[in-house]
Design a protein around this nucleic acid. Structure first.
Lengths: 257, 257
DNA sequence: CGAGGGGTTGACGTTGTTCAATGAGCGTGG
DNA sequence: CCACGCTCATTGAACAACGTCAACCCCTCG
């Protein structure tokens, strides 16, 4: 992966609304949403851009006028210390409406960058405001979506603050697997996990070397297999037990009905 | 402090609207809000309850129908592991609208409990819904308030994930001092900091013994003084530098104008 | 006056870091 | 085609940060 650079390659949207079905799937997991409402949201997206690994989607301190939805690829929210250490706060997968936070906040407190090549659809804040005015119900849905991010932040705090070694890494695996499953990105126990060991360390507060050793132990214990871009879960129950993983914080079950 | 128990002592609100001026001050720091609008919000609060240290304000997994605003005292958001280790995710001070998250989420992913005796005003979700319907502007303001919590979670992740020793503790001190200042709870460099060393540890992922040693070092270096309920900052610049504290994540400056 | 919550301190063990060397894979240019 | 520079992964040994165990203090409250 290249370092976090800023060269974006805009691609013409071609007039047709982008395929945001993965995003809609995450919404419909929790709210009822008619086909018409889904199309309405999709039609508001203005452009689709292709990003390289390392490209910024949003930048700390910047005032941006649009939100981005990941159609394809992986991204991450992160902040950096003065010494250049990076802390990743959330891994973003296809279907994630990544910088919805920028809508109420206007100026972002953190950055978001592509971890792999990404396809991203953009929705101007103006269109969002209009959408909410016409359909006040959407405000609650979008507010809810951002609150799930906050819930995930809290679980990560619990993870980094109280768990150690294999459990910490196992928990990250469990989360990404569960979320990938929701948007149809798993095949049996296999799922895409394109983070380098360095990036896993940046998620968990570990060095790359320590991540390497813990991954080795996880493989030795027999809960996961695969070392590259694709991870296979050999013992889902065991992995969950090891990580003390309880998916409640992801709010995957329905609310309204 | 007693352990986190569940005995709440309701106190009659007496008909008059509670004094939520500290909360309004935090809002007015970022948005313009007329006196009338402030009174309108205050009038919606239904009851004021007095809590003992350790009492729950909200409980993980519970479905609650109201939000709580801290009028007086300190509280904390936290989660627990199976082993009983507690991770505090946010320290709540007077003026904080603590479980506004429960409004969009309905079921909370974490618990909130009083750290000291607390006075808390309650606002039913129904009243909140009505308030937003009548004044759509309030939705943005409240959404914003919850997003600042998310921003604080991210800074805590950075703190626990990348900083160590004295810096980690210094950062917590800087945050509580800055936020206390906003609601008029500082006197010179002095502010109330009623967390036990155990609780500080639960915020930062340290044991009580390690917190003790780091506090000792902070005192030796001469940036803070005081060991009990009240902490005095002797060298604000030095403390900030040590902690790499940048208050931007608290969104204390105005937005709308 | 005894129990129990906090705080303080020391010796020692564990977890995770640092430094350092090595190899595998992959795209680029000669 | 191969050499090269690069990123990523792997491993070992020394070291630092932090946790554990244990003892002791002070204070408050019943």
């Amino acid at each position: 992966m290249r370092t976090f650079l800023d060269n974006q390659v805009p691609a013409p949207a071609g007039g047709a609304a982008p395929d945001i079905s993965r995003f809609l799937a995450t919404i419909r997991q929790r709210f009822t949403l008619s086909e018409h409402e889904g199309d309405l949201i999709a039609s508001q997206f203005q452009e689709v851009v292709e990003l390289n690994a390392g490209d910024y989607i949003a930048r700390e301190g910047q005032k941006i006028g649009f939100c981005s939805l990941i159609l394809d690829g992986f991204a991450a929210r992160f902040k950096e210390t003065a010494a250049g250490e990076r802390q990743i706060m959330e891994v973003q997968i296809p279907g994630d409406f990544v910088d919805l936070h920028s809508y109420p906040l206007e100026v972002l407190d953190h950055s978001i960058a592509a971890l792999t090549p990404c396809k991203v659809a953009r929705l101007p804040h103006r269109a969002l405001t209009q959408l909410i005015e016409d359909h006040p119900r959407f405000a609650r849905i979008l507010w809810f979506a951002t609150m799930v991010d906050a819930s995930m932040h809290r679980e990560w705090l619990l993870n980094i603050g109280t768990r150690n070694g294999m459990a910490r890494i196992a928990h990250l695996m469990c989360e990404i697997y569960s979320r990938s499953q929701l948007v149809g990105l798993t095949e049996g126990g296999k799922f895409r996990f394109p983070l380098s060991q360095t990036q896993i360390g940046e998620c968990l507060g570990y060095t790359q070397m320590h991540v390497n050793r813990m991954l080795k132990k996880l493989r030795q214990v027999g809960v996961i297999a695969g070392t590259g871009q694709v991870v296979e879960i050999l013992d889902w129950e065991g992995l969950q037990r090891l990580a003390e993983f309880d998916p409640a914080y992801l709010y995957l079950s329905g609310r309204e009905g």
